[in-house]
Design a protein around this nucleic acid. Structure first.
Lengths: 202, 202, 202, 202
DNA sequence: TATGAATGAGACTTCATTCAT
DNA sequence: GATGAATGAAGTCTCATTCAT
């Protein structure tokens, strides 16, 4: 009945995805109702099933597609880094920066992906692994160039980096009054991870 | 009908909690059915409601009580540490060690608490904050004693430590074939966090 | 699956109300199962919740809407009365007459409204008060015109009239073999209430 | 464990009945829980089943036994009446008076008996019929003595009397602020029923 | 007799999904 | 493609009743 804004014609699928991010991030996957996402998208309940197989598929598509954008974006950004350490800094800054421009998305990834990778049958979060692989790449390169410790366990280290950022994101999202600013924090995280918390010995 | 094994007398509540850990960790909170927990506990569905107000309360009680044990235990253990750095090592080792003896519990805390703190109304994960406070204590002390950098942001650092351990736990839990052993990993995490991943400069 | 008899299009809500009258009147509110009303309406259980908030709301809606019809109807009918006494006669006749054409409805109002007004939270039977107000109107008017005793306590009198009709309805409904005919009874009730049961003194 | 007040020893059955009156009158039969009656009686849940077959039986026993007392009592009281009219006055006064001294009981009879007589299988409210029979007796006698109209339909008349009192009881019970006093009301009811509401013709 | 922990059937309600239009 | 009314399976929770002590 309502005339669609021509600029939005044909992008129903995308509107549904955006609405899903908003709703999932606000209420969590299990507490979100398909009809609520439909309402937020401005489409009928049934329409969602024209674009997605089911509610699970909506979450997975959402994750894979948005994560693909994030991966592609960070890959481009780190090219500006002059060395592995610099690229690591950029990676961390970028991740924490997403909290400001894509809060909802990060929030969904945060909580829901964990659910998904555990409970959605036959689902491997391919894009998430790609994201981690970017980290691996930086770390491997750093080892080769002698910037990073030669005995660094890359597999552990990349998880440490991601875990640290992820936990800080969670804190940021959950705390009503933000005590820290993402960009400030990213500097601290970077320093901490690159140099450790021990005082320098003379 | 109910087995009256004397060793199990009066521990019905505990049996329910244990069963809940097992079921929640396997299927996640939302995918777990109360009746399944009942079956796993060997009690009737209704019996669960004699000990817990509702399904939410079961999760929260589970978390608060088990986390209290974890907190009390780690507090005792770090006393054996000779200095803040040593205590940090013990803390990390202890956390990663839980993966072996209390896998299910860690798994529930991992995924479900995040849900809870976001979606359960009026719930503050008091015990989780206590756990983080133990970390803060170690870090503060280290700063005072000059072991840790004086400009260390304790609030960020403790989240980095926890996040790193948490992400590694997740990896450990999710990966079908464990690629690393918790105790080995904890050493690497400790080294990484205390010294950073940068190679030492001469 | 759903029959699309054109005469029944769009009247699903009404079919549910009718079925509810039938079931409530036969088994009582608390003994009636929502699924039974669904079956009697020829709709799925869930469909009831598209039209009514919950089981309580179904009863209340039923009462308010049907009572509104009864009130509107009796108001129109008493206009045919030539004087207050005549209008009172019509009112009583009308009420007792409902037993024949709307037995189920009267039965629900009879028993269930009492429950409701006592136990349903925050519910005031507005339409029932309107019904009583019609009686008040007749009585007040009769007092003004000198037809009724000037010392008549209208508030008590209207309850006496309603209570008498109500109890007779109950008797009529409960007795397997009807011993009296509603229209006959209404004449007796009218005579009794207007003249009292005392013999005329010379 | 708690020492019983010796004056209450052995009267458990009665304590349960009293508690049932209190609870049923406050919450209604279907909203009352057996365990609540148990608590109010100071006995264990199971104990109730030593004295009553089930929840229905508790209601029926309550009704029959208390009603028996009411019937016996009113029979004795009306003997003080000098003539049928006087006895009718006493009957009405007595019924309305119960509102003050036995409010809970009247309340249970009010609402619950209607439920019971409709929905409890195979139950005939014998004692209620006895109560009505007392009214019949007075009316028959009055007819024989010429005090009451010879064409009075006793069966209808007794229901009118009972219905009037019953509805006024209901009003009294439901209204938060009592607008009338039972004993005052009973005088008005008596006058209304005996003389009718029509003004006397010269 | 008395207890009260335990039972388990069954109710209400939700909501992902379908399908006639 | 789009709709949204309808479906009905399934889950949480209640509570009358039992029975071992």
């Amino acid at each position: 009945m309502p005339k669609k804004d021509p600029s939005q014609l044909g992008d129903k699928r995308n509107r549904i995805l955006q609405a899903a991010i908003e709703v999932f991030s606000r209420k969590g996957f299990f507490n979100s109702k398909v009809s609520e996402i439909a309402r937020a998208s401005g489409v009928a309940d049934g329409t969602i099933y024209l674009y997605f197989k089911n509610k699970d598929d909506l979450l997975i598509s959402l994750f894979e597609e948005k994560m693909a954008e994030v991966v592609a974006d960070v890959k481009k950004r780190i090219q500006a880094g002059e060395n592995p350490l610099d690229r690591m800094r950029i990676f961390i800054e970028n991740h924490m920066g997403l909290l400001e421009c894509e809060a909802g998305l990060i929030e969904v990834l945060q909580v829901e992906l964990r659910q998904s990778s555990k409970f959605l049958k036959d689902y491997t979060p391919v894009k998430f692994f790609e994201y981690l692989d970017v980290l691996s790449g930086i770390l491997e390169e750093g080892k080769r160039e002698g910037v990073f410790r030669p005995d660094l366990n890359v597999n552990v280290a990349r998880r440490v980096v991601f875990g640290a950022m992820d936990e800080l994101s969670r804190t940021y999202i959950l705390s009503k009054r933000q005590k820290f600013h993402p960009s400030v924090t990213s500097a601290e995280v970077f320093q901490l991870l690159s140099e450790g918390f021990c005082a320098k010995r003379a």
